[in-house]
Amino acid sequence: MAGLKTILCIEDEHFISELYARALRKEGYEVTIMLSGDDGLVAAQTDKYDLILLDLMTPGITGMEILDILRDPSKTPNFHSKVIITTNLDQEDSMREELERKADGYLIKAEITPKQLVGIVKQMEEQISNLGG
């Protein structure tokens, strides 16, 4: 199955990233944690990851800026990772369209448990494998 085996978690709240990493690792995923936006961007641009969990409010460069750079082929050529926004900010209407264009998902962290996050990642894997890609 074409999977989302390697996952980058860009999340400054240490407790949250640990909880996510723990739950995902238990299910066999490889998880790398970056606690700042700047480190996160550098890691994301290596395109080593199948999936990026991206917080919007990161110290330094923000999640939204990271997303912009990742989706700009002149700044990040050959970018293939899926990006799921993980945030506790409610999606503002002004940003809705842009986020729906640039991200592959948008999750309110307080509304899901780490286990549910794993379920969502698995569901996404299934859909991708159904595509044959």
């Binding site: 709240e13 949250i16 909880l19 307080a110 780490p114």
Partner: peptide
């Protein structure tokens, strides 16, 4: 929501 996320995470563990 931030502490809530953490709380729910640990409770689940």
């Amino acid at each position: 929501r931030t502490p809530l996320t953490v709380m729910r995470g640990y409770i689940e563990v």
